[in-house]
Structures are given as structure tokens and as C-alpha cells.
Nucleic acid binder design. Sequence first.
DNA 1: CTCATGACATGCATTTTTGCATACTATGTC
DNA 2: GACATAGTATGCAAAAATGCATGTCATGAG
Lengths: 292, 292
Amino acid sequence: MHVMRENWDDLRAVLFMVRHGSLAAAATALDVNYTTVARRIAQAEESYGVLLFERLPQGYVATDAGLLAACEAEKMEDAETGFRRALAKADTRLSGPFSITAPQLLIAAHLCHVIEEFLGKHPEVELTVRASNALLNLNRREADLAIRISESPGDTLVGRRLTGQQTASFASAEVATRIETAPEATIDWIGFTYWTKPPKASLENYPNARIKMQFDDMSAVLGATQAGLGVARMPMFLGRSAGLTQVPVLPPQPYTDIWAVAHRDIWASAKVTAFKECLLPYFKAHAAEFMA
Amino acid sequence: MHVMRENWDDLRAVLFMVRHGSLAAAATALDVNYTTVARRIAQAEESYGVLLFERLPQGYVATDAGLLAACEAEKMEDAETGFRRALAKADTRLSGPFSITAPQLLIAAHLCHVIEEFLGKHPEVELTVRASNALLNLNRREADLAIRISESPGDTLVGRRLTGQQTASFASAEVATRIETAPEATIDWIGFTYWTKPPKASLENYPNARIKMQFDDMSAVLGATQAGLGVARMPMFLGRSAGLTQVPVLPPQPYTDIWAVAHRDIWASAKVTAFKECLLPYFKAHAAEFMA
DNA sequence: CTCATGACATGCATTTTTGCATACTATGTC
DNA sequence: GACATAGTATGCAAAAATGCATGTCATGAG
């Protein structure tokens, strides 16, 4: 009956291979050496007697059977994370591992204070903060709680709106003064990815404007603005917390809300609840910094 | 993120522990040493930070978390066997592993001929025959095809009725002659488990009867009957193939049908189809041996 | 009470798995 | 065409998992 050696973990390797595309990437995600991934895949193939990947010059390409294996392995992963969630839900202790994710700049500007308060109240909690703009998969439990800039929690998650937001134009004090003094001079915009021209709403009062430079990262935009290189559009909270001066070039614009979201099963768990007890009052108290 | 070492196989150990009740039994089923099962469980507990089993003097007893883990692991197992089935279904070759299960005595009396024919036609197939009265779990893919004595394929399986059956009373030639000669003498019955008296229908014509001995195994009943120890009720095919003489003590009685059953996904696969092509003609040709 | 049995724990030697260093092959850049 | 890069293969030594032998503890039979 059980000639086959255990191979659930081999299927996991197949899943990660399909998901990440190369041995190296899969290995990184699995936190093992890529050699191991190759061998696990080979084992799985032997165990099932099927070729799961074709070894082409450009790398491993999944066969139909390989895709099917990954599909079923994904179900296995769902069950496994389901178990993890059930444990997290049942865990009423305010201690042990707890992970949150949020955009870097929001952490730097505000959440760091919430985190400090939370850890002060609950020193037993081993908090992991994943500062990332990437949308981590909460279903897969890449984090317990996410603070996201989005319109809604999304289909499969539950959440709570923390605050509304606006964007506005900011510049260094020096640049701000210059603009005030000589409003007719050319406005140098610091753009974010895919901007090709200055925002329309700004052209009414300051038609003499151009995109001076562009970045794909908001930290870079922020740095350039602080260095006095020009005017940038950014969330109100960011400009303010960075010590920039709001300039009237672009009037405040509505922007995406900030939400705290979690998986349905986790939302009411002890540690998430405790974190929310720090989070909500903080945002209530600081709501003014997010809007004009 | 992935501090946890891979642990899907550890969950499998938990599942088997819950299913089989002791380290030794789980280990046997997993085909590993029981020490390994204990260590896997310990690893899983560490990895999830939860006690899955309580170590009581009478052995491991699953905690709520342990039962939950087993439940989720069962879902993982379902996904895994689902993949195996998909492979089997897609496998159009008439070669490689193929397993069937059937009651021992039916194999000995008839199926051995079907098997011989099948292997003659398809010598590349590596056939495993699991002769067992236990109902193997075809969902879990303990066998690809089962020949069963039952009323219907069951909820989750599909199948085909091979033949009806009757039981009757059989005895050795010598005993049969004695009964014919002296019908009024005491009839010694050889009973099967839980029989407490001779079958009612036999008492009308042969009221002078008693249960002489009882077995819990039909092979034993058969042996005792062949040894001339008495009369036994058994499936018609069995008495006939064993060279026993049918005696009129108990007239033929309706008995459970014989079915070939398989998982829905496997039923139409190449090897199952090929086997059925031997099986159905055989039962058509030998139908008379199962009924009066 | 003794003995046999079943269930588990543990130390140690062995086998297996893993990681590392190195080699190989395509692709694309200058 | 030299060179850097991405992706994979492989031999070998280190690390980890496994099996085995032995020991403990409770239970039940005689």
C-alpha cells in the first residue's frame, strides 16, 4: 500500500515552483536551497510516475500534470492555512507571534506610534511588521492584519475603515516661499510613475509647469521634494509628517481611504482585537492630519 | 516568513495518529518507525505552538487542536488523492500499477480466472490484488477497483452489478449421502458468527437440527464442511467451487448481489475498462454458478 | 504477585536529505 | 566575440531524519 514515501512536502515544492517560476525563486520562498526544490520535484515525479515539468533551456515549464498537481497542492495549502487560522482564532493569549503589514510610509509617519503603544501594553506579543507596498495574501496568512490604502476590504476579507484621505501638493519651505513670491515662474513637478504631465487641476492657477523628474517609488519622491527639487503630489499625511510645506499649486484632492483588514476568521481574535484598540483611537485622534 | 520548517508531512503523521490511535499503528500505516511518528508529532506541535496530543499513561490522546489538525489534514489528503485519481484517469496506458480488491473466497473460486485472462491480455500491467473482506476505502484510493458483495455501489462510488446470488446448504459427499439416507437423523450445522440456531427455513423439513460449531471466518466454515463435520449455509458459488454437494436441507435463499465498483473518476480509466472487459463476459458465462 | 503485553521514551549508529561549491548552457548586451 | 546573467545539474561533505535496541510505565491475566 504505502510503497510511496511521504510526499506531501514534495507537492509543496511543486506548488511553489509553479507559483514562482524558477527553482531559485521557489527555493527562496520555501527557505531552502534550490537544489532541494529540484530534488523534491524529481521525487514527486518518480512517486507519481508522471513528468510534472519539462526541462527546457529557459527553465522548468509545468506540464498539464504539473499544473494539476499545483492546483491540488493549493487546496492542501488552503487546508493547512485554515488550520493555522483556526488556531489563531482560538488563541486568546496576548502573547506569541503576531504579524501585521502596512505601507512603509504609513508606518514611518503614523503606525510606528500605534505599534509602540501596542507593544507597551502587550510586551509578550512577538510582533512582526512587514513594511511593504505589496498586497500580501491574508488568506494565505502572510500576515494576520493588514493596514491598506484601498476602497474596501475586498471580497474575502473583513475590515474597518480607519480614515479618509486627501492628497495635496507639497514642497520644501524654500521652494514654497519661491512659489509664493513668484507664482508665474515655472513649477517643477516631481512625478510618480506613469505621470506624463502635471495634474490638470494645478494648471488652472499655475499653468507654467512641467514634470521635472519621475520616480517609481514614493520614498524617492519624498526625498527629492525634501531636497528642494520641486513640488510633488502626495497624501496629506505624508507631506505633513515629512515636514514639507503644503503649497496651493494643487488644491486638496480626494484620495483612497485607509483600512484595517484581516481574514474573517482572524478578525475577532485576541491579538487583532487588542491591536485595533490602539489603532482606532489613534486614527480618531489624528484624523485631522489626513484631510485638509 | 518561513521560519517554520516544512510540515505538511508532519500533519500527515498527526492524521494517521488520530486515525489509528497509537504511535505503533500509525507508524505501520505510514510504513515508518513509530519513533518517527512521535517525532513528527512533536515537530508539528512545536511548529504550530500548540499541544496536539496529551501524553497519558494509556497513550496519546488528541486534544481539540489535534482533532482539528487531523480534520484539516484529511482535507489535504483528499486533495492529494484527488490528484492521484486525476492522474489515473488521464493514464491511457495499459501498463503500470493497477490494484483491485475482492473477497478472498470469490477470488479463489472465480476471479483468479478473470485475473489470469486480464494479465494474459495486458502483461505490462503491474496488478496488485488485495484479497480482503474489509471494505477498502476507494475514495482514499486503497484500491482502483473493488469487487464487492453488496446491495449497491454506495453513495460516492459508481459500479456495475455483475450477478445476483443465492445461498444454499452444502455438505461433503459423505454427509450428503447420510442426510439423504436418514433425513430424520440430527443435522449438524456449521454456523457463521452470531448464528444461534439453524436457519428457520431449514427446520420445516429437517426439524431435528443443531448448531454443532461456529466460526467467524468463512474459510474455516468451508474447511469444516469439506472435512465432513456438518452442513453449512454458504453462497452457491462457494459450495459448488469447493466441490461440496448441495443438500436439500435449506432451499436456495436470495443473497446479496456482486458488484464491481470504483471511484467515479477512475471508472472510465483505461485499466479499469480493460479489466471490466474480462470481468463482464466471465460473469455472463458463469451466471448459472451463482444461482440455483 | 508474577508475567506478558501494549504504549511510549531515549541514546546511538546509520541512512537520507540538504547545502555548498562548481560546472554547464542559453540569452542578451556592448 | 567577450562578458554578464539567469537558470539548472552534480559531486561531496555536513546536517538532519530515521531505525533500532533498550528502558520505563501502566494494565490485565492467571
